[in-house]
Design a binder for these strands. Sequence first.
DNA 1: TGCACATTTGCAATCGGTTTCATTAATTCA
DNA 2: TGAATTAATGAAACCGATTGCAAATGTGCA
Lengths: 346, 346
Amino acid sequence: MAKNNDNKTITIYDIAKEAGVSPSTVSRVLTNNANVRPEKRERVQALIEKYNFRPNALAKGLSDTRSRVIGVLMADIRNPFYSTVYVACEDAALARGYRVILCCSLGEIDREVEQLDILKQQSVEAIIQIGGSVDAVITESTYIKKAKEITRQLPIITSGKIDDVPCYRVGIDAREAVRLLTEHLLDLGHERIALAGGRLDVISTFEKYMTYCDILKSRGISVNKRYVFEGGYDYDAGYESVKEFMAMKEKPTAIIAINDFCAAGVIRRLVEEGYRVPEDVSVVSYDNTYIANLLFPKITSIDYDYDTLGKMLADTAIDVANGENLPSFRSVTPHLVVRESSGERR
Amino acid sequence: MAKNNDNKTITIYDIAKEAGVSPSTVSRVLTNNANVRPEKRERVQALIEKYNFRPNALAKGLSDTRSRVIGVLMADIRNPFYSTVYVACEDAALARGYRVILCCSLGEIDREVEQLDILKQQSVEAIIQIGGSVDAVITESTYIKKAKEITRQLPIITSGKIDDVPCYRVGIDAREAVRLLTEHLLDLGHERIALAGGRLDVISTFEKYMTYCDILKSRGISVNKRYVFEGGYDYDAGYESVKEFMAMKEKPTAIIAINDFCAAGVIRRLVEEGYRVPEDVSVVSYDNTYIANLLFPKITSIDYDYDTLGKMLADTAIDVANGENLPSFRSVTPHLVVRESSGERR
DNA sequence: TGCACATTTGCAATCGGTTTCATTAATTCA
DNA sequence: TGAATTAATGAAACCGATTGCAAATGTGCA
């Protein structure tokens, strides 16, 4: 791909000719592991540097058995949660000599199915999928069908779970996350704790819900279903939830938002209705994206240690691709970041 | 890349054999443009569907003269401005049958230089670069050197400007953006308008600054240099700027933040010091990312119509790659989105 | 010095497509 | 119906690397 002054793409053949050796020798210098007489190696190396030669990645990928590329399929890279995980994955992959290809499904199931094919076409060695169909309890059958087909050929690593499809799970310890948040609030004296946003047909959300129920019960607090507002994972879900919560006689004194976007909506509506955060109502959330730090008040949120998560995802992908036998489920431990949005019940 | 039941990757040769035709014919069916007898075409097509066959992208890229891939090099995909532009670019590219490869430099010049090589290695037909060295007036010489080398071989499309390197510019009409914001504030009665964040050695920031000066002068208002706070493009820059501004005798009554992050810092500090936004101080910003909508108050910001920008970038890249003669500078027209953070001077 | 053995090296096949070119089959039209 | 023309097809070269294998060169030791 490097070009000489004539602007022609130069190849190992050109280097070989000028160095007076065979292309194989140049290739051996490039791949570094074969044994080449030092004198020739230097001669070739000098030309590589002279022309700033880089071997064509497509040709290399074709001839190698290993493409050294892993695919990352996410719901939407514009969401800071995903982009943070993506960058962490990429860093970890790069550290092991792998490249990463990004695909976004943008919530469209057809696109998601299509992306799996596209990644396969690119000869990726494994696919990391975060968000999208893998998170839904009842997954679209076209997706399942395609995922099954794919997993016969290359491993899928996911934070979710695909029915009937064997894949490696690298997730977040959702139970621990809920525990941290719920007990934080209980410790502050809150008992009327509401849940804002998220759909219960999404596995991680469902797990969170169940754990929330368990914890309350274990503390002798009965679960009030009206304190659970199902909705999306966005600002609006949070905003709408508060309309309902604060219209109740027994208003919640604390709200757990499904993510930082949702928390922003919750806080907005609370402020609009004249409540103060955290004096009147505490608000906490999951994900601890940079948004948690941008809002006023800054939000108490659950952090997942994205570098660790990304590394776990990438390492699993690469290890599995190399045939290593790994546990099919690993998870990262969340921790609580206390900020300004949660306080003692008054 | 599709595999049959034996889990072996199948190729056009397999399809050809089973269909009783030559690989060339299968290829013709695949590329669609050659003429193949309908009967055979159908026979081949049926097998393609049966096995869900997709031609290997690496092989295709290697044999084709056109790779139909463009590279996108950005500063940091975790920044909503970049991720929004990226998705828009990808969409536009996809619509024209092109794929996109993402690289992030994360602010490291070495990485940025390296990425140019990596993209070249991938046989991209053009590189779109937004953010990073292309934005700096005095660009690192290692970068310039590499960029020069690259542009001899493939076009670079950028929102910035690289000294001495011929590239296609697709930008934002910065002067118009400043005009919209400044006149909006002037119309609201503000005269003491401050600038928070951004470095003047960044072209777009410098352009904004110059235009700001021009507009104030044309209205007979003298420019107070103390109203210009240079800094980064983040929350902290905004936060720090307000410390200085509000310590002055003649405090500004309106602040233009260099982006939404910066605006968040500005507002935060204002609130901490007991000022209300917009009653006491108006705050506006550039970029109109979703952050502008999340904050309280919602921020009046400049929108760039990201879909149009993305399309302009991708179209330029593809057109230039195809040898079309385009104007070397095109720009998108910004517009003002008025929200809650700006109001009449009291 | 000569022979056995270890290193280097190049040839040629391969990865999986596309495309040119020559050949063959199908049409068109007088 | 047969010659001229056009459409369909396959063989083979090519894209730019890697790698198995055999040949060539170098080394060690008796």
